[in-house]
Simulated assay, not measured.
Amino acid sequence: MDTNERIWAALRANGLPSASQRDADTLGQGWSARREAFLMPTNARIRDLIIEHADLLREADFPAPLRDFCAHVASCEALLAESEEGGAGVGKRPATHIRHPGSDFVQYVCLSFAQLKGEQQRLLSAQSW
């Protein structure tokens, strides 16, 4: 996940339009190439890991930040497939149908990981060798 956050920060620092100005027209082909080459492969892998290991989640229900992230990735995949099939061209479609959950997702993942590592350390410390 850190990889995508770093790429995203670099794209914003190098002229990616603000969220309110972002659509297929303002992003252009350069955005599509970056999304397909850098962001989507990692996003798809993160989504797959979430789904494959959902049984390890602490919550009884699937957490909203994870659900929103998975929906965002599916939305992007649908738009990419549409583009590959010669569907709506640039300027006639949104950058995505479902927005990335942003900081809610990042915070959830970071907090959950920290809690998991804390629990792991507690269990290892309590274990008698």
Rank of each mutant, 00 (worst) to 15 (best):
C76K: 02
D61Y: 01
P101I: 06
V90K: 13
P65W: 05
I98P: 09
D104T: 14
L56Y: 05
A64S: 13
E85P: 03
E85W: 00
P101Q: 04
A74R: 09
A95S: 13
S75T: 11
D55M: 01
A64N: 06
L66T: 10
S103H: 14
T42W: 03
E82P: 14
H100P: 07
H72V: 07
H97M: 10
G89C: 03
G89M: 03
N43R: 08
L80A: 12
R67W: 02
R93G: 05
P63S: 04
L49D: 14
D68R: 15
D68N: 15
E85T: 07
D104E: 13
R45G: 02
R67M: 04
R93Q: 11
A88R: 14
S103T: 12
P65L: 04
R58D: 11
I50K: 06
L66D: 04
C70W: 03
A44T: 13
E59I: 06
F62H: 10
P94K: 05
H97I: 04
L56H: 08
A78P: 05
E82Y: 06
A54K: 13
D68C: 09
R93W: 01
L56R: 15
H100W: 05
E52R: 15
H53M: 03
T42G: 01
T96Q: 13
R45T: 02
H100T: 05
F105C: 08
K92D: 15
E77R: 09
V73C: 08
F105D: 05
E82L: 09
V73P: 12
G86N: 10
F62L: 15
L80Q: 14
A78Y: 00
G102L: 02
P65N: 03
D104W: 03
L80W: 02
A71C: 12
A71E: 13
A64Q: 09
A78Q: 12
E52S: 14
D61L: 00
A78N: 03
S83A: 15
T42E: 08
P63F: 00
H97D: 15
A81V: 03
C70D: 10
L49C: 06
G87S: 11
F62Y: 15
R67I: 01
E77Q: 15
A81W: 00
H72D: 00
E85L: 13
E52C: 01
S83V: 06
L49W: 12
D48E: 08
S103W: 07
